[in-house]
Every structure is written in C-alpha cells, then in structure tokens.
Amino acid sequence: MTATLTPAPEKAPRRARASSGASRRRDSGPLERQQSRLFWPFVAPALLVYGLLFLAPIAYAAWTSLYRWDGMGEMEWQGLKNYWILWNDPNFASSIVNTLKILVIGGVITFLCSFLLTLVLREMRAKLFARSVLFFPNLVNAMVFGAVAGFLFSPDGPVNAVLGWVGVETPPKWLGTDNVFTLIMATLIWTATGYYTTIIMAAVDQIPPYLYEAAELEGASAWQRLRHVTIPLAWDVITVCAVLWTVSSVKVFELILLFGGSNAAEPPMQTWTTAVYVYASVFPTGSVPKLGLASAAALVSLVMVGLFTVLLRRLMRRDPIRY
C-alpha cells in the first residue's frame, strides 16, 4: 500500500522554483520596477510597529532579566542571579512542571483524541455541523470554562449530585489541591481537541479518496488506514500542529486564573503555569513587584518554546511524500 507513495525527489521542485524566481527577476518590466519602488513605503509601517511593539520589547526583557528592579527605584545589576533564584524557587519549578505536563501529557492526549475524532468524522453524516460545534469552545474566553467548572464540580454541585444518583457516595474532591490541575488539563484538552481535529481534518480532506478506496479493497482496517494512509500523508500538518501546541501551551493563562471559581487574589500555587508565574511576579499581592525576575521567567518560557520547536522539527522530520 505504501509502495504507491514514492517519496518525491527532494531537490527537483526547489530548483524549479529557484529558476522561475530568477527568470522573473530578470525581466524587470514596468510593473516590477513599480513594485520595487513601493516596497519600503508598503512594508515600513508594519515593520516599524512590529519593531517597536514586539521586537524591541523582547530585547528589553532580556536586558531587564539581568537586573533586580521593583519598577520604581534604581535598577540593580544582578547578572544571571535572577535565573539562579528561579532555579531554586519551588514555585517556579512547579510552574515549569505544570507547563511541561500540559505540553507533553496534554499534547499526547489531545493529538490522540484529535486523530480518533478525525477517524470517525471523516465518514460521518453532518460532519460539518459536528466539527463546528467541537470547534466553538476555541472562541470562548477560557475563564468562562474555569468559572463554570467551579460551579459544576463544587462539593455540593451538580456533578456530585448526578454521581450521588448513580450511587457514588464519596466523589473525589474535584477542586482539591491534588485534583484541580488534572481538571484544568481535561478542560484544556477538550477545547484544544476541537481545534486540532479541524486542522487535521482539513489536511485529511486533501488526501485523494482513491487511496482510501485502494486500501479498503486490499482489506485494510480503519486502524491500518490511519496508520498507513492518513498519518503519513498528513505528516507535515501534524508537525506544524505540534509546534502550534507548544506555543499555545506555554501561554496558558486565562484558564488558570479563575479555575474553580477561585476568588483569591491569585490562583492557588499548585496550578500555576509559567505565564501565571510571570504575571504574579509583576503584580504580586503584598510584596514589591519583581520585574527582573518576571522577565527572567518569561525568557525561560521563550527558550522553552524555542527548544521544543527545534526538537520537534528534528524528531518529526520525514521525507516529503508526493501524491
């Protein structure tokens, strides 16, 4: 079955593209000249805004991370001491562990669920409707789900009431310190699955149906079709999804903020992620802001994204498949 999918000669298309680009550059007609004259006037505003509001701040964050600063007084040179403080801070360690849990465990479960859903949705009636409903939670501020979970899972709330009807007398302490993060991850997986299912489905729709027909004629089961047709042919998209997931899991913030209807000034520490840690260091309750430390923590999360992206690209590299 996979024998029909010959890997494309990798160099050929690239060379073709390069030569066509060169030929276009050679015949610089009036249109070409016009566009080259307008290049900077068109691009400069966006580049300027981007530089000022995005790139410069990243550099400034790196610089601030070397100082001790409360935002008011003098900045005090620290060198790399902020990173040392982070290394020894149990709260930061648990924030990193939580972020990694979301990234790795949450990621694996989300992608498994997305594939299983794709498998079912591909051949389902009303699949567009089902897909839309599954996608919708991505448009909702995650705080809403956090707050609703606080109501649904409260000790005498609806979930426990339903469990009581079916005879569960001692339900787990859903919002207790041991379980609340699992519940947060479950919520995240539920919303994210809708998103990644949609992306993977779009990629699967591009796969020519005759490949599936051929596979079925040869007696391939649903699992074998997934393993030998869908996954290899959607591999590029899966790689991009993995990178997207990395970035989005390092950013998780809203969901934690109100989860379980926590109305303290800060969410409980065992649920913190790196984003919450940064926020809590900039706006602490009852102590002075630690802007240098916050910047250092933010940079650690940026480096995490970078490392995981490189790692994923390495691990997931495959020869491209042409079909």
């Binding site: 290049f39 400034y60 950013k251 984003a275 900039v282 802007l291 910047s295 940079l299």
Partner: peptide
C-alpha cells in the same frame, strides 16, 4: 520574493512563537 522580503517574512513568522508574557514587563515599563 527578494532576499530582503524573505527575511522580513521570516522575521514576522518568528513572532508567532513568542508567548505574550515575554512582552508584559517591557510593554508595561
């Protein structure tokens, strides 16, 4: 599709990987 244009495109694309909390302190200051 010149070299400048391609590197600017890359520069914008790299921004997709930056988590918002990195910009919090600098933008606030």
């Amino acid at each position: 599709r010149t070299r400048t244009s391609n590197s600017i495109t890359m520069l914008f694309a790299m921004g997709l990987g930056v988590p918002g909390q990195v910009l919090l302190v600098p933008l606030f200051v």
